[in-house]
């Protein structure tokens, strides 16, 4: 390259590490300005004096907002509901996702393997609102399932309540987060040396014994990573609880939106956001603890 020698001399002095720092400077600056600073601002505002309609920092810090959050059942129950919902969804997706991940990992035919991976990736990448359209057509009071049951005579005029309730939100969140679970597991299951399973079998273990005693424990890192990811994304979702819950299943993201967009209570909205942030962070710490324990147990 003609201009390479011009750049070479000052860059050379920087050394390899220095050049990597230089290369990443735009990215680092971008994340500092548009990620670190806004989050710090969010924290600051969450401790500020609650004044409806005022967005600017008033520099009057107090704990009022957090006291309000943890003393009103409306809010702390929403936090418990959000976390419980996310934990339930991550258990269900593990149960449903593991078999598919296992099948994909054990499919050695490259064409079929790629096809399955493409199907899972498409399901993951498709806009959730579009997938919710499909789910709502399927599960609504006059949806396909209820119409089918009516047509066959299993139910009368009153529809099965599949949507606009807790059940609907769980189904929506499971559909939303399943692909993430499957993808977290496929790589780990593929990485298990097949000779381990064969050895267990040849030593007389039954197929199920091999599965429970070898395959499942060996895929623990993937199980934990998948459960954390599913917890985080179903805990964060705003669209699924609003559309599938019909505003009856109130989770933290709904409170944030209401406080900000409908009530103009900026400081308290920021407080709810900070609580969400803290719970996400906490779940990550729990995950790291569990992951360290899982890998330590095996070594």
């Amino acid at each position: 390259m003609s201009n390479d020698h011009l750049l070479a001399s000052p860059l050379h002095k920087l050394g390899k590490t220095g050049r990597a720092w230089l290369l990443a400077t735009p990215g680092i600056v971008y994340f500092l300005i548009f990620f670190a600073v806004p989050l710090a601002g969010l924290f600051l505002i969450s401790f500020d004096k609650p004044t409806a309609g005022v967005v600017e920092v008033q520099w009057m810090f107090r704990l009022d907002n957090f006291v309000r959050f943890f003393t009103r059942s409306l809010y702390y129950e929403a936090a418990i509901r959000s976390a419980g919902l996310a934990a339930l969804v991550s258990a269900i997706t593990l149960f449903l996702g593991y078999p598919l991940a296992y099948v994909i990992a054990k499919t050695l035919n490259p064409g079929r393997n790629t096809l399955l991976m493409i199907l899972v990736l498409c399901a993951m990448q498709l806009d959730m609102v579009i997938r919710l359209f499909g789910l709502m057509v399927l599960m609504g009071d006059n949806g396909l399932i209820n119409e089918f049951l009516r047509w066959t005579g299993f139910i009368g005029e009153t529809p099965l309540p599949l949507m606009y309730n807790f059940f609907g939100v769980v189904v929506g969140l499971v559909q939303f987060s399943l692909p993430f679970m499957v993808l977290s597991l496929v790589g780990v299951i593929q990485g298990i040396n097949p000779s381990l399973e064969e050895a267990a079998r040849s030593l007389g273990a039954r197929r199920w014994q091999t599965f429970w005693k070898i395959t499942i424990p060996m895929s623990m890192p993937g199980i934990l990573a998948g459960m954390l990811l599913v917890f985080a994304i179903s805990f964060s979702s705003y669209v699924v609880p609003t559309l599938m819950g019909g505003w009856k299943v109130v989770v933290l993201p709904i409170h944030i939106y209401q406080q900000i967009a409908e009530l103009g209570k900026w400081q308290f909205g920021a407080t709810v956001a900070v609580v969400m942030f803290a719970i996400s962070l906490l779940s990550m710490l729990v995950y790291q603890r569990a992951a360290a324990k899982a890998s330590g147990g095996r070594a």
């Binding site: 078999p99 598919l100 359209f133 399927l138």
Partner: peptide, 11 residues
């Protein structure tokens, strides 16, 4: 699981 993943898309 595959059915749950793909049904909304098909619908």
């Amino acid at each position: 699981t595959l059915l749950i993943l793909l049904a909304p898309m098909v619908i």
